[in-house]
Design a protein around this nucleic acid. Structure first.
Lengths: 206, 206, 206, 206
DNA sequence: GATGAATGAGTCTTCATTCAT
DNA sequence: GATGAATGAAGACTCATTCAT
């Protein structure tokens, strides 16, 4: 009765897993984490409740896997964008575009993502499951900031990253919810905010 | 005009209600909305579950009442701050202090408030209950912005307010969670962000 | 969400608890521990599933409380029987009657008791819950044996007690299941067994 | 007479069955009947859940087959012991050794056996499946007793057998659980009990 | 015969809500 | 108004069993 189940992760399993995560993401977007019942997730994924547990030990594990997929998803998007570009040498505007555009696009096409990423106050269970996501994102942003403003003390760099991340998180729900025109306008504002916040840091040499 | 009894007759009821809302706020802060059971709220308020339902139709009504109390609370704080001050004539720095300081103080001493105000993705039930809070806050900010930058189109003013509000919301959880020193640093950053965002709007005359 | 529920135990509660334990005992007798669902226990007790959990934290707690009631029940029966009698001075036959008769009567009128007491191989959960019962009974028998055969080493006395207890346990199911005549015959045999086993020990002085 | 294939064709099947029964026995010993899931049995037997059901209609059938194997196992052990010995002419001590030693050895090396044999109160399903085992054992003991004490009425002989069997059952769990030294001591006691119980019957001629 | 993914009824437990006192 | 026992509909999760491959 211990916990020795391997939790299948092969072959056809991968597709199933993806379907389950899609279903969970959709439900999270619609009703939130707590109200998204595992039975409902299974039903939306087109499988039985029992099958769901063949792939995930419990509900928290779904959130966790989803988190990881989000980290991975944005990392890929960012990776592609930054390929062969020296972060340090980019104009700030361009850097912001490269960082935000894929992130926004990802959140718009996965509206449930904000439950995991954009949420600022969540059940303890969810918080534990998504902490790695938060930390990964914050770490990435900290790295960029450190590269651009090397004179900043580590604590200051991390705080700056936190501020940026929280701003983006805060803006995500209205951005995702808005129609195309309003979204474009909101994104413009968001970028203006970020630029206005980061620009002075870069100008201040040691 | 003849019947002035209700005012006093409900005096005790008012206190009960306040106790319930305090209990709910505390529990929301500690475990979140879903995990805060009505029985636990009643227990913390020192009453029986049955009594709780004499004051609130259901759990959602508690969130709603709490929302209203928060609107009222921050309105009062702001009202006191702005008393006899022409919003339009204030230096931007001072305006930001006047708006944020009471809000932050309120959230710090009521950490549960972020569940209702700072949360960016919540169960449908909660979202419905707290919409009035969001709208009231956004309306107030819109009014200030319109007063300071009268050249802005109404839609732009409202969007600007939304951005400000979402930034503040996003920053609230880390601000509330931080220790005193880090909190001060974070608040400084937050104010810098807001100032950087609003300053250009005010300088641009029609 | 910790475990601070007092688990009511007063006034009307006592009757409820008794009803629940009766229901559990009956069901244990009929279908065994695992197959006795908490919902079935509640139904038989004439209450809802939710109510059951107002009195018992979980299924295991029911078994535990039942165990304690059995210890208490047999202790009372024995207590009454032994009142003012010097265990050491009693003829062996009489002692055996005094020990077994109440025990058998108790098990016959509570056929579920053998699930907790007479069972020799049980789910881990049940085993944990009933260990105190086993230990209490063995301790009591050890005390009697030590009083009657003071020359026995402690380990030997305890082993002797274990043997007696296991014999009685083993005999309980057929005794309980038999009709009146057959039961009388089985009890006669059982007493013969016990007497034959204990008699030599008492004759052997230091 | 023409078709002798089945015997060999099922050779591999026989091994599979044996492996499944071994797995079940082990699991029964470790966690009990209810907690021993069919999937776990299959896994321990090194086959898939589906394959298990090609050999056994359901879980109960496994218990039943295991019962039969135990009957067979002890019958063989006893058969070997009694070979060419006139049961009626043996000294009682020797008879008891011949009957108990193989049984104890068998249970010690198959600790799961007590779930089927030593258990005195089991789920209805299990009880049905193991009744043949109980009856076979009791029948065998009855036969021995009848042979040694022919003056006993059939009902008395059977009752005596029941008593002996239940005593042995009751002692099996502590015997199996004890370490070597304590086990030897317990077995000595057990044999003393049985001898003390049976001796008088043999001495009393009609 | 073998596989293992899939099933879905059923288990324990929780909790918003009601109601007799 | 107050109480707190009672309710019962779910929810997360399990497991004996089936079936397509």
């Amino acid at each position: 009765m211990a916990d020795t189940r391997p939790v299948r992760r092969q072959a056809r399993g991968e597709r199933r897993i993806a379907e389950i995560l899609d279903a969970a993401l959709g439900l999270f977007a619609e009703v939130g984490y707590d109200a998204a019942t595992t039975n409902a997730i299974a039903a939306r994924a087109g499988i039985s409740p029992g099958s769901l547990y063949q792939f995930f030990r419990n509900k928290e594990a779904i959130a966790q896997a989803l988190s990881e997929r989000l980290v991975e998803g944005t990392r890929k998007a960012h990776g592609a964008a930054f390929a062969d570009r020296p972060v340090a040498g980019l104009p700030l505007d361009e850097l912001i575009d490269l960082m935000l555009d894929p992130l926004i696009e990802f959140n718009v096409s996965n509206p449930g993502a904000k439950t995991l990423f954009g949420n600022t106050d969540m059940p303890a269970q969810l918080a534990a499951a998504t902490r790695p996501l938060h930390e990964a994102v914050t770490r990435r942003v900290t790295a960029v900031i450190t590269a651009r403003a090397p004179h900043l003390a580590p604590a200051a760099a991390e705080r700056t990253a936190t501020v940026v991340v929280q701003i983006v998180k805060g803006m995500m729900p209205p951005v995702v919810a808005a129609d195309d025109d309003e979204r474009a306008a909101l994104v413009t504002e968001l970028k203006r905010v970020i630029r206005g916040y980061l620009a002075p840091l870069e100008d201040t040499p040691a």
